[in-house]
Nucleic acid binder design. Structure first.
Lengths: 303, 303
DNA sequence: TGCCTGCCATAGGAAAAACCTATGGAATTG
DNA sequence: CAATTCCATAGGTTTTTCCTATGGCAGGCA
């Protein structure tokens, strides 16, 4: 048995046929037929049911598929692990972050990281929580920054603390001169809220419900950036994470604290539990923790 | 990267050199040089330090070695897993047992198992606990029967219950007519005890110490069989597991129960936690549990 | 029904990979 | 200092993999 046979088999199962798999692998279809036949011969039984319109795995094939995938993932992991012991630190680090975290937090992390580890090629993936999770599980991401999340055991969750949410107002809004906004002040405002695709959108929705703030919600934005622009133009108000403060000010908004109970959202860092954690990933985590402390999201920097 | 390269690399590390590994693998030494060089090239750094007298792995090599072994083990496991879904049940089942369990218990398990699963090729390994453990971890054994044992997390321990120990006497011994032997009866006897290599030997030693039975130990046997023969010839007495009763009787001994607190030893079945458990292994486990219940070692047959 | 299309298997030759024998250099040992 | 041990390299051979071409089978469509 050889690894290329496993790669071929996995592709055939996933593509549902030899021809499509051949295209994906950039090899001729007979090569696949040959290698799969060899594999089946070695294992002593067919792995695929050849149907007129493609193939589906047999029972044995399904079992083998799962294991083949794991083995290939481990091979990739071994490669990364070995590559990681080169000096100085180099390689690629793929960081995921949700859209309501990325613009506020990542700039604070990426620049210092690049400075400290110039050899590491950074890549950022901004996406919604569930999709980040899936990509982390697949091994595409080294780590991910999300808010509250429910994960499977293969994913390691680690809190970075809690980030306050503030009230986003146009600079010339009557409330904008206050030091602090009270919940009751918000009841009459026109709300611009984030789509509930975003966990922040869902959280704000729940918060307002709990606080009995019945906003006139008349605009659901897909991006916080859109909301900031709208607020800047006096079209309404909103809630935004504290890390968006500078961004909001620059666009002509104000981000003001809310009176107790101050709303907060949890910030979590996700790592894959089984895959090798590169030194770059660990360095990034350390930096993130440090940053969380500096921002007052948590008190100590120990785990 | 291909699996044969991993196999070669593992062999070179374990043999400490290309030449020895080549002999083990039945290939010419330059083939190894070539394939390892390729592997190192693909991983971007040397895995082995070439010394005048052989090779030792670099840091990267050590990391890679661990993972390569795991990958190869998973490949073997995948093969077994796939083979296991053939009907009827077939394949090989390798069972380990310590010498103080094997002769008494295995006959009760092997015959019915072979009858129920004629397609399964049974193999038995009789060895001391530690060595069975190691072989189980290596994947050489499917399961093992031992007494008390401390294991690492990769090994799954499951109690089959507790087997009583009896007193082994010559048939013509004055005590042999009793229904039950008392601890005090033993104090003046000449003891034949098992080498402390065996866990039963250690246990008997501790038991006697605890019960304050100071036997005149003058013979340390390496096998329980030897002890039975010696006892049969009136050379001394001993303690033996209850499952040796029939064997002892056949050789002209008697095995009698001891008064409370009746000494017992734990009987455990070991399985590897991570490796695939063949249906044959599970069937054997079921049979062992059933047998343990029939022998009165435990009350229920549920896990 | 009959043709067309998509899909996989087979055959045979070409390309690539792995392997082997022979040899050389480096360091150690007697 | 010669002999030995061990790994790397070179060059040719064998084996494996891969590709192109082709054939058979079944479903879809006129």
């Amino acid at each position: 048995m050889e690894l290329h046979q496993l790669r071929y088999f996995v592709a055939v199962v996933e593509e549902g046929g030899f021809s499509r798999a051949a295209a994906r692998l950039h090899v001729a279809q007979p090569s696949l037929s040959q290698q799969i036949a060899k594999l089946e011969q070695e294992l002593g039984q067919p792995l695929l049911d050849r149907l007129p319109r493609g193939v589906i795995p047999t029972d044995a094939g399904r079992r083998f598929y799962e294991r083949a995938r794991r083995i290939l993932a481990e091979v990739a992991d071994a490669t990364r692990c070995v590559a990681d012991c080169r000096e100085p630190l180099q390689g690629r680090l793929v960081v995921g972050a949700i859209p309501t975290i990325a613009p506020g937090l990542l700039p604070r992390l990426l620049s210092p990281f690049s400075e400290q580890h110039p050899g590491v090629e950074l890549e950022v993936v901004e996406d919604l929580t569930e999709r980040l999770l899936r990509r982390l599980e697949e091994g595409e991401l080294d780590l991910a920054l999300v808010s509250s999340v429910e994960v499977e055991s293969a994913v390691h969750v680690e809190s970075l603390g809690h980030e306050p949410l503030g009230v986003l107002l146009p600079r010339n809004h009557p409330l904008a001169r206050h030091r602090q906004i009270h919940w009751d002040d918000l009841k009459e405002e026109k709300a611009l809220v984030l789509s509930e695709l975003h966990c922040l959108g869902r959280q704000v929705h729940d918060l307002c419900k709990a606080r009995d703030v019945r906003w006139q919600v008349w605009f659901q934005a897909a991006h916080l950036g859109t909301i900031i622009e709208m607020v800047a133009h006096g079209i309404g108000v909103s809630l935004a994470p504290w890390s968006f403060g500078a961004l909001a000010e620059a666009r002509g908004c104000r981000l003001l604290p809310l009176s107790a109970p101050q709303p907060r959202r949890e910030i979590n860092l996700l790592l894959h539990n089984l895959r090798y954690r590169t030194r770059a990933a660990l360095a990034f985590r350390a930096l993130a923790r440090q940053c969380a402390v500096a921002l007052g999201w948590r008190n100590d920097s120990s785990e």
